[in-house]
């Protein structure tokens, strides 16, 4: 509960990455930053560069084509970093599970800290997930 964990919990900057989703989750994830939900209240910002990001928000089952890009984006992020799998496809592969062209979930490729199921999850679910992540970062 030092100053460092307080600062890390209060300032989670999110990079949004679509790993082959149908765009449904992306619309809901971006809606969490609109005036109605306003994730910036908790200090959460949407940043454009992986070098600035603390959390990687992945939507969609990881297709074989985008797998290398996802790993590369993940490795470009500075430590400490968190991965949020947003949507059923990102959590388990969803309806694409067992498909010849997808890996079936983000956790098959990179380590995942937080799963937010739903098809698509509501923006409230993302805010709940962020609150959970903040609680974990503070060590509560």
């Amino acid at each position: 509960m030092g100053v460092l964990s307080w600062a890390r919990a209060k300032s989670i900057w999110v990079l949004h990455f679509n790993s082959g989703g149908c765009n449904g989750c992306d619309i809901e994830a971006v809606a969490a930053f609109t005036p109605r939900f306003d994730a910036e209240r908790f200090g959460v910002l949407l940043v454009p560069s992986p070098r600035h990001a603390d959390a990687l928000l992945v939507t969609g089952p990881v297709t074989k084509q985008i797998k290398d890009r996802l790993i590369r984006i993940y490795e470009q992020m500075p430590e400490p970093k968190f991965v949020i799998a947003f949507g059923t496809c990102a959590c388990t592969g969803g309806v694409f599970k067992g498909s010849y062209s997808t890996c079936g979930g983000v956790d098959k490729v990179i380590p995942v800290d937080l799963y937010i199921p739903g098809c698509p999850p509501k923006p409230e679910a993302l805010l709940n997930g962020i609150a959970e992540l903040m609680r974990r970062v503070r060590g509560g």
Binding site: A7, S11, E40
Partner: peptide, 19 residues
């Protein structure tokens, strides 16, 4: 905007900076 970090969110830039 940021309202939960410190009183009315005034510590938000400090949290960003320290992080």
């Amino acid at each position: 905007g940021p309202i939960y970090t410190g009183t009315g969110g005034v510590l938000q830039p400090w949290a960003d900076f320290i992080k």
